[in-house]
Amino acid sequence: MTLQFPQPVPVHRAVSRVDAFIASQNFDRPTLVLDLEQVVSNHAALKRGLGDAQICYAVKANPTPALVARLAAEGCGFDAASRGEIELCLSQGAQPSRISFGNTIKRPSDIAFAYGAGVRLFAADAEEELDKIAENAPGAQVYIRLLVTESEADWPLTRKFGCAPEKAAELMARAQVLGLKPVGISFHVGSQTRQSAMWLRPLQGLARVWNDLRAAGFPLELVNIGGGFPAFYGDEIEETETYAAAVRALVGDLFPGATRVMAEPGRGMVANAGAIAAEVMLVSRKSDSDLCRWVYLDIGRFSGLAETEGEAIRYQIATPRDGGETGPCILAGPSCDSADVLYEKRPMALPLDLAAGDKVIIRNTGAYTTSYSSVGFNGFPPLECVVL
């Protein structure tokens, strides 16, 4: 098999409608502005690239009702992690046959609710979870989530979810004994897998498990490739359609007999469709000899920017003073918590004349911001979302 992967290209993902709207408003609190037309465009590009794969939007990335409704109208499926997300999807027009209950940690009562609502596809990675599904969703289809240990993603997901490869056959057999229908496997190569070539090694390992399971007599048909589709945070990435097409080609080559392919994009569907309008609260130096200024924004880790944990996601910030001389800054949020620091290990270069009261735009923040925002830590309101 000769493998060819697309080359990363500069993708700056400026969202002009969002920029224009933010410029025309005077926000008195941090606000995410989300362009649904960009989301629809992202969905279409993923669909072209992934071909016959079923796209199930990962609702946790951004659960804004208008967004869910628009994707449902586009025929998109949904990866739901809770009863609340299932209720949201159903209330916005999603068909239960297009919803996958993808969390491997579920309450029995929530499994029963989903089954009663018509959901028939469930994830599991442990014996006890299969027991719960069998009791509360008899005869349902299940897929077994596998650990991915060779991830090259910026944010690997290698511990909390999934079972070891050698355990998969045991779980498949148990599902059959319980009267469930084990239809396939799922996995997640890691959040922000920036290049399609990074899928090769993990998929090769997972394909060996797939082939072993089919050789053991399990009539598997479904490969759920999860998420990992990247957004632009400063490092160049491939165009959405070409990236998705390269991944789909790998899956086709490595997983013979897979008649159903699912993908669960979250970040890749919505990140570049949104930007946060924020404000500088304070610029200071701790001493006259400090090389770095401290820049405090009115939004921080507890009010929407949780993905700056470990400085894993590095947001791009536009200021009204861009174009002049810059200097290193430690970026922090407004709360009275010493952990509310966004970037310190790698200070951010911001204009030297940046000052309190300056309005800033935090780009590509459509994913994992409103959903991570606290309900009111320190009295700061949760992140508001305006939909265009």
Results as ranks from 00 to 15, higher is better:
Q38I: 03
R301L: 09
I317T: 10
V18N: 07
L67R: 14
Q25D: 02
R293Y: 10
P65E: 05
Y368K: 00
M172F: 10
V189N: 08
R363T: 00
C292Q: 12
A23N: 13
Y243S: 01
H12V: 06
D235Q: 14
D288R: 12
C292T: 02
T365H: 05
D19I: 05
C89A: 15
V223A: 13
N224V: 00
F255N: 03
R98K: 15
Q204C: 08
A173R: 14
G184E: 11
V283W: 13
D337Y: 07
A53H: 07
A73W: 06
D125R: 13
V295M: 13
K106H: 04
I237K: 10
A94K: 10
F161S: 06
V9I: 13
C89H: 10
D52P: 08
L3M: 10
I330W: 11
Q25Y: 06
R260I: 04
V386T: 03
K47T: 05
P230G: 07
M1Y: 01
F27R: 10
L354G: 08
Q95S: 15
D154K: 15
W155C: 09
M281H: 06
D110S: 15
L250F: 09
V40W: 02
D125F: 06
T149A: 13
C292F: 09
E325A: 14
G234T: 12
M172N: 08
F101S: 03
G227Q: 04
A66V: 02
P219G: 09
T369Q: 09
S151G: 06
A81P: 01
S109H: 11
S371H: 09
S303P: 04
P10K: 10
R17Y: 00
Y372N: 12
G366T: 02
R248G: 01
I22S: 04
C163W: 05
A263M: 09
